[in-house]
Simulated scan of single mutants.
Amino acid sequence: MAELYLVRHGQASFGSGNYDQLSEVGERQAVWLGEYFSQQDAIFDRVITGTMRRHRQTLDAIIQGLGRTVTHIEQHAGLDEYDFHALFEALGPQHGALKALRHGSKDDFFKGLRQVLQLWSEDGIDGPIPEAWASFQRRVSEARRAIQDGPGKRVLAVTSGGVMAVMAQQVLRSPADTAIALNMQISNSSFCRFFFNERAWQLGSFNCDPHLDRVDRRRYQTYA
């Protein structure tokens, strides 16, 4: 069977005017991940990212840590994150308190995000949104199919936490609640390892961050 290492981007710029930008911590996380892959002699014969800036920045830092040249990089929009800003913004007046959590502390934001994702999965958001939950599910499935149908025995793909959670949910054939719960657990620069062939997928490991599992790096374990 082939392998997919599905990586979440490094820490982005939470709370800034442009979230789609790695922080210095995020860059360091991704370099360390590349160094880990190099130490494991992991040679990827196919490399894919979403189309977001933080995805490509994470890949560039991984490549730096790998110390190897990557000559061909693909993009697939199915690996792009959902627009959490738009989901909060589309909440109606009856969800005013929930909408306000977006501007609270980081803990408030994640508490609110879980509720917003639940509403989204139940088609319970009143205002206009960029895509329905079913559409998000569909494009993640399309990205997974593109990986499955393409070449490569060891594939590296850089994406975001929501995509990782939904892909795991789909492979496990679990309900939407599973994707939401998993989404809340995924740390920056962690990876999931999948095995696949032309017929089936298996989840081998979830939310792994061995490159940060050291006493002197614990403070680099982040979630936003």
Rank of each mutant, 00 (worst) to 15 (best):
E27R: 15
E27Q: 14
E27V: 15
R28T: 01
R28F: 02
Q29L: 08
A30I: 10
A30P: 08
V31L: 05
L33A: 09
L33D: 03
L33V: 13
L33I: 14
G34H: 04
G34N: 05
G34D: 01
Y36C: 08
Y36K: 08
Y36G: 04
F37E: 07
S38I: 04
S38D: 13
Q39L: 12
Q39I: 06
Q39A: 13
Q40W: 12
D41Y: 03
D41Q: 15
A42E: 08
I43F: 14
F44Q: 05
F44A: 01
D45E: 08
D45Y: 08
R46L: 00
V47E: 08
V47P: 05
I48A: 07
T49Q: 01
G50V: 02
G50A: 06
G50W: 00
M52Q: 10
M52S: 01
R53Y: 09
R54N: 04
R54V: 01
R54A: 01
R56L: 08
Q57F: 02
Q57I: 06
Q57Y: 08
T58Y: 05
T58A: 07
L59C: 01
L59P: 02
L59I: 06
D60Y: 02
A61E: 03
I62G: 05
I62E: 04
I63Q: 03
G65Q: 10
L66F: 09
L66P: 03
L66T: 00
L66S: 05
V70A: 07
V70Y: 00
T71N: 10
T71C: 10
H72W: 08
I73P: 05
I73M: 04
I73T: 11
E74M: 14
Q75D: 13
H76V: 08
H76F: 06
G78H: 03
G78T: 01
G78W: 05
E81C: 12
Y82L: 10
D83Y: 10
D83K: 05
D83M: 11
F84V: 15
F84I: 15
F84Q: 11
H85S: 12
H85R: 15
L87F: 06
L87K: 01
F88W: 02
F88G: 00
F88C: 07
E89T: 15
E89G: 09
A90K: 07
L91H: 02
L91I: 11
G92A: 07
P93E: 13
H95L: 08
